[in-house]
Nucleic acid binder design. Structure first.
Lengths: 153, 153
DNA sequence: AGCCAATAGTTGTGATCACAATGATTGTGT
DNA sequence: ACACAATCATTGTGATCACAACTATTGGCT
């Protein structure tokens, strides 16, 4: 039925989703803060650590992180200041700046990653259960595909 | 298995979840912006419209919205400025300020709500399918209960 | 070659939010 | 009655982010 309102089942599902999200991300942020990292910082390190040569162009990184160009510029400022990332210009295209993970950045990343994984497991995956994890993956894959089909990247 | 890393199934589930979320909320924000509302504003109106006498104490509202007291104060400033909410002091306890939904605020809320519901349905519930909606509700209810059992409100 | 649109990154500005400090009021314990 | 802790809301300050404007560079088109 496609009325203007939600059915009871839809209502409870939507509410449990939308009310749980802030608490869930707050739990992740709190756990990561013990390493002096925000989730935003951590995700930058993850992207760079998985990239070829531990570096990415700013625009690609911004796209992957769903950050605006200016947002990434300022986020990187912080990471550069503490020495986990450095900027490197590109000889082939002088418009381009690379964000490059430093050894210190990689060390910080490897220090924090196990705790973060444990945090995700403890606050999220574990309560879902093995079957629930599989369901969750399928559900959000559907949502993602639907979003991308409407608003192609 | 509780290793330091995620299994493939966990990995794909977690990634599809964490990468879809920003796009999903962006879709909701975009749709709501057609009414001049942010999701934050909209949720304030929802809470007040469902409260007794269309009003709530600031501290209760902040708790419900998962906002800090200062965050709510500033968010309310904006809503008061456009006339959708007004502040009212409490005779019984003069520390307390009520946030009170105005008729204009209720009208704005009733104008935007059907579109927002349609947005939620279109971007989220519909791709999930009927069975998926039920699964989602159960999954996040488990996560919520787990979070609250660890960090009681 | 030369013009011009497209791309890459930064900076100015304003919005949103949290933390800490402050002021005002309430309630509790003695 | 009175002191003191707790509660409620706001303000000062700083962090994060997006949008718009800007500079620099590149690549396509004539």
């Amino acid at each position: 039925m496609s009325t203007t309102w939600l059915s009871d089942a839809e209502q409870t599902a939507w509410r449990s989703f939308i009310t749980t999200l802030p608490d869930l991300t707050a739990a992740f942020e709190t756990d990561l803060a013990r390493h002096g990292l925000s989730m935003g910082d951590y995700e930058v390190l993850v992207f760079l650590s998985e990239a070829a040569d531990n570096r990415m162009r700013m625009c690609d990184l911004a796209g992957g992180l769903r950050l605006s160009p200016s947002g990434l510029t300022r986020r990187l400022d912080g990471l550069v200041k503490v020495g986990w990332v450095e900027r490197a210009s590109c000889a082939a295209d002088r418009r381009v700046m690379y964000a490059h993970l430093t050894p210190a950045g990689r060390a910080k990343m490897e220090e924090a990653a196990p705790d973060h994984v444990a945090s995700v497991r403890r606050h999220f995956l574990e309560p879902l259960g093995t079957a629930g994890v599989g369901q969750l993956g399928e559900l959000f894959a559907k949502v993602r595909d639907h979003l991308h089909s409407l608003q192609p990247v």
